[in-house]
Design a protein around this nucleic acid. Structure first.
Lengths: 196, 196
DNA sequence: TGTCAACTTTACACGGTGTCAAGTTCAGCC
DNA sequence: GGCTGAACTTGACACCGTGTAAAGTTGACA
């Protein structure tokens, strides 16, 4: 051995990705190593800890899926409402793609500072997106009068949480399309003056 | 030792309660034992596993706080809207009381079937409450026309999740009062025809 | 006095993460 | 051809937290 697909590092990342996507329950370092066709120690040669491997995996996915590019449309949308809808759609379609790793990362949040921070960063990025959408709505004069920008942002941010997607989609059995329309609708009702 | 407050069992439950409430991070069996003034093994004399201790602790809290009694008002409310508001309020005020244990229970969901089931049961109970509130709204002819009872229930159920409370209250820094008014308002906007 | 139950003490197995040290393999280069 | 260094393997081990096992202590009650 072994055959050496270019580098072991990306084989490990791919293995982690697919294993976590299949989900099941607890994916161990040894599972990932085996799936990558590499010894358990080799994994530690590339990633110092499980947390950092998971974090690297999210980056790997983002790259492979060209996430940045897909967030662009919402940024150049004209009106606040359109922007809100596009943003919800972009994020809502992103969630299932990182859900596997995200779940693992969330699970180790309160046992691992590294993981906590990484996930918090991602959530902060989401919150920035929310703030931008809220600002666009406010610029149109369409933000509900009884909401500050902060509160509106918090609300949207919470609405769009991975946990909510998980609950509706995995536990309540909603389709992705149902999730998207319901959440778009709810976001509009929650934030905008003229929800009709 | 030791002083023997009546039974050790309830001392253990109390210890678990307060430790989990203080939160911090990971509460171990040995922490609980120490706080209860008892050996680690004594804990296993009363509870077969960590999961079952946590579950017993939630029941212990429910009893001490007389949770059932407090849910009564919403059940006998007149209109659908009042019922919804009272239900959100009752549940919303319940969350912080079980949050400590709930968090620990949620954390071990995908490593422990026992815990998963116990938490799922609680969530099922919540969903029943949501369904009843939705039914009351529907009976008034006030349920949004584009929502089935199922969908409306799922939506309310998700809105009221512990994780949403956690995010708004612990991460976004909202007060309990802010949380309650925002969620009541949002629930009404989400489900009812005449949200104004 | 003896017995039983509740509890303590000590020890250990297990699973998963992370570390360490000594091989092996192989590419590149003199 | 022979050396070197990097990438990887193998096997062993420490650590932590949960859960189990077994023998010893204490004290109430008959």
């Amino acid at each position: 051995m072994s055959s050496s697909n270019p580098n072991a590092r990306s084989r490990i990342l791919d293995a982690a990705w697919t294993l976590l996507e299949e989900g099941g329950s607890r994916v161990r370092m040894s599972d990932i190593a085996k799936a990558a066709g590499v010894s358990r120690q080799a994994v530690y040669l590339h990633f110092p800890s499980r947390a950092e491997l998971l974090i690297a995996t999210t980056r790997h996915i983002d790259e492979a899926k060209q996430v940045d590019a897909r967030l662009a449309p919402s940024r150049q949308a004209m009106g606040g409402r359109a922007r809100l809808e596009l943003f919800v759609e972009a994020w809502g379609n992103y969630i299932p793609e990182i859900y596997g790793v995200g779940r693992a990362l969330m699970a180790m949040q309160d046992s691992d500072e590294e993981a906590r921070k990484a996930w918090a960063d991602r959530m902060k990025a989401l919150r920035h997106g929310c703030a931008a959408a809220v600002a666009a709505i406010a610029a149109d004069g369409e933000l509900r009068a009884d909401l500050t920008g902060e509160k509106a942002t918090d609300l949207l941010w919470t609405l769009l949480s991975v946990r909510n997607w998980e609950q509706l989609t995995r536990e309540a059995g909603w389709s992705q399309a149902e999730y998207l329309t319901a959440v778009k609708d709810l976001a509009i009702r929650a934030l905008m003056k003229h929800a009709g």
